[in-house]
Amino acid sequence: MTANERKSFWSERLPIDWELLQHPLREPVPYHMNFWWFALGGTPLILLGIQVATGILLTFYYVPSPPEAYESIRYIQNVVPFGWWIRGIHHWGATLMILTVWLHMLRVFITGAYRRPREFNWLIGVGLLFATLAFGFTGYSLIYNQLSYWATTVGTNIFKDVPVVGPLILSFLRGGLDVTANTLTRFFSVHIGVLPTVMVILLAVHVLLLRVHGVSELDPKDTRRIVFFPDHVLTEIIVGFYLMLILTSLAILFPPPLGELANPASTPLHIKPEWYFYPVYRWLRLVPGTVGLVGAGLFLLVLTFWPAADGLLERWFPKRDLSVVLGSLVAVTVAAAMVWEAFVV
């Protein structure tokens, strides 16, 4: 078979216009995309890939049933060759993913990249943030240690105060009235099936909207351009290598703890959720249930529809860029609540 025959063999069976497919790869993007801190959206995407790969590997040994779940993780951590590495990367990958999603969001906020015409993509982005947090919550609930059990109990109980449908939501989340084996299988199913599906759909729309709008300009005077492929892709590959280095170092230096086996009859004296829920946790310690729920709900509502709220602020105070001031205040308050919760009992 000659080269030409081979070419026609494949083009006949795969009648795809490769030139057209390569077109989006060659799109020119602003020069600032060369710097990873301006392209922070790519980092959680790489981390998602790492989480999917390590997550699939973990399911080869994980048993989603109490108390075997705890034992299976102990087995992964202590017996399976390189189990500690896969679990360590998955644990720290989750932490870094949540951190980088927040940082990406903060960058978008501060540079005003959510403004017209990109309001919908902010909305999709908030959906991705919620999905990431839900990944974290369902993920650490699967270990079936004391933290998992009581975080699941508290986390699901928050919804019981929702007017009218509260008990229904509680029963839906728990698979019954209490946290039982049904809850664990539900969380497992959501963690490895529902959330990945939701996330992939949202990500597809997020990236599609990003491509049709184009990357937002940082400085309109800067007309320098790089090509998406290979320039920007190379930056992301380098980021990927650094991430693996960081994750492996963290897995070696700070292996994720296993904790004590869950005991539904006794809540430990010092119990806290993972760090990314510290602000909510501190808030719930300060105020009664309904106020806590309404307050958190309002915050999330404003965050979700921020482009609309920002539009109103601009109309009322046209000469002041209040969004940056407000956003910075909220970011500092959230960070302060995190530090307060981390260092004060």
């Binding site: 009581w150 109990t153 508290v154 109980n157 928050i158 009859a265 809540t267 004296l269 310690r285 249930g289």
Partner: peptide, 22 residues
């Protein structure tokens, strides 16, 4: 009755205490 954790007994104070949200 707040968010479902198990309370503990504080014998000196003769009170129940919930460790989750104090």
């Amino acid at each position: 009755t707040h968010l479902g954790c198990q309370v503990k007994w504080l014998p000196q104070e003769e009170k129940f205490f919930c460790p989750c949200h104090l």
